[in-house]
Simulated scan of single mutants.
Amino acid sequence: MAERPEAWERQPGESAAAWEAFACYRDLGLSRSISKVADTLRKARTLVERWSTAHQWVIRAESWDREQDRLWRAERQQASRDVARRHARLASAAQAKIVAQLQRLDPSRLSPSDVIRWLEATVRIERQAYGIDLAEAVTTSGSPDIPDVSELSDEERRARMEQLRRELESRIGTLGGESQ
């Protein structure tokens, strides 16, 4: 048994001239009209109207529009997935370079404000990774999530920075292992 053609394809019993007129109508998009088809093909408007009625152009053109919309959405979704994959690969490569730099970082050379900036950045990244609303992200002023390092001695700050570096390396290592 022969398959029925899609609504926007040539239909059984549709003459070549009627098919050409429908294809013209279909391809006009949202500005389509019987008059435009008649003018474009230099056919009598009454003839084009008869073809349109006999071959259900309006319904077929709507099917075409829906199919084009479906294809466009699928293409956009695929493009979005491709972009996300590409960005993830770039982020992973950048993270590897950052981790290499972190391993060479001498905590004793960091000021308290450097420590706070590093901590804020890592907290923000971690919250984003877990989908925590960034509006809830911590700030440096009075946040219970960030200790007040101004009261710590240099030795205590260095120890805290070393602890944070180890935690960050551990977390990055865990995240890196999950993506493989």
Rank of each mutant, 00 (worst) to 15 (best):
A2I: 14
E3V: 10
P5C: 01
P5M: 01
E6A: 14
E6N: 09
W8C: 01
R10T: 05
G13E: 02
E14K: 01
E14D: 03
R26Q: 13
R26E: 06
R26S: 10
D27T: 07
D27G: 06
L30N: 12
L30S: 13
S31F: 12
K36F: 05
V37T: 04
D39W: 09
T40H: 11
K43R: 13
A44P: 08
R45F: 08
R45T: 10
R45W: 08
R45N: 06
R45P: 06
L47R: 01
V48F: 02
V48G: 00
R50S: 07
W51V: 00
S52T: 01
S52D: 03
T53Y: 07
T53F: 10
H55A: 01
H55I: 01
W57R: 00
R60K: 01
E62P: 05
W64N: 05
W64K: 04
D65I: 14
D65E: 15
R66I: 13
E67G: 05
D69G: 08
R70I: 09
R70E: 14
R70L: 14
L71N: 06
R73T: 13
A74R: 14
A79S: 12
R81L: 14
A84E: 04
A84W: 04
R85S: 06
R85F: 07
H87M: 14
H87L: 15
A88R: 06
L90Q: 10
A91V: 07
A93E: 08
A96P: 02
A96N: 05
A96Q: 11
K97M: 13
A100K: 11
A100Y: 07
Q103M: 15
L110H: 02
S113D: 15
D114Q: 05
D114Y: 09
V115L: 15
W118L: 15
W118T: 01
W118S: 03
A121G: 10
V123C: 03
Q128T: 08
A129N: 04
G131V: 04
E136V: 07
E136S: 10
T139Q: 08
T140W: 12
S141H: 13
S143Q: 03
P144C: 00
P144Y: 04
P144T: 03
P144K: 03
I146K: 00
P147M: 07
V149F: 09
E151Y: 07
L152C: 03
L152S: 00
D154G: 15
E156I: 05
A159W: 06
M161C: 03
Q163S: 09
L164T: 01
L164V: 04
R166Y: 05
E167L: 14
E167W: 11
L168T: 14
R171N: 14
I172N: 03
G176I: 01
G177V: 11
